[in-house]
Design a protein around this nucleic acid. Sequence first.
DNA 1: GGTTTGCAGCAGTCGAGGAT
DNA 2: ATCCTCGACTGCTGCAAACC
Length: 288
Amino acid sequence: MQTLRFQAPPYPTFITGGKATFPRNHKHFHHSLPVFDLLYVRSGTLFLTEGNNRYSIYPGEYIIFTPNVEHYGHRVCEEETEFYWIHFDTETKAEWTNQEATEWREIIHKEASYTTPASYTLHLPKHGRYPADQQLERLIDQLLLQHESKDPMERMKEQQTFQQFLIWTQQAALHIPNAAQLKAEELIRYIEEHYDQQLEIREIAKELALHPDYLTRVMKQATGVTPNEYLTQYRLTRAKQLLSTTEWTIAEVSTQVGIQDHAYFSRLFKRKEGRTPKEYRRFVQSTS
DNA sequence: GGTTTGCAGCAGTCGAGGAT
DNA sequence: ATCCTCGACTGCTGCAAACC
């Protein structure tokens, strides 16, 4: 299996991306780009050829195509096929190798000193699979939303999200999740499905059959943030979407994202975003 | 309608440590 | 190593009132 190997930082740059759906009997067109092209299949199957190699990309799998090498569909889709496409490029030299990395210590190229940052050698498999959950799709959706956003602050965050996407891709290539990570993933799923309701850590812990303290600990260990911090972050992301795409009052938006007290919502919003919800809406409208 | 401020209560977090 | 509990304390949250 070929592996794309490159140094970071600087991390590769996200250029553009999108979501596409091919109907049944549709075939991918002939295509060659001057940058890397990553395709991630959400449902259905893509049958693609690059050079002399044929690939079948099933749901949950991705493939990375090489710049300036033509790829095309060698077979029609047998069912409706939904996939994401992401174009990116590297500033550092990137090369295809047959050496796969199997442990994190192979990724950490050099530890940081007082004057130089840590450096990493990422090894991304040409054709790989992500763990079976919807976190990754949410991350890509977030990336595409930021890319399409009229808010310059959101646009600036897209590279950050793309870096996280690359780290997850690297993690998926090596990853054997431990118990804490599995529980944190379960908690994240729960939060994202119930963020619009009143959530208490004790209730969630009961739901997941764990002690509340323990839940906080595994979440912090796996993601670096506490359940509450994650919930707040998620609610504010949804609130920003609603503020920029609807005419709802601040109180309605607040209720919609699970915060009953709109006064508290405004305060929270200003603390995290640096401007009140009203200012945010005005700002987005003025830049569109 | 939306924001700010003050305040009280308590939920959530963290360090330490025990049980398995 | 993993899972869990306890006690202390921080800061989150909801409410009310005043103001823009």
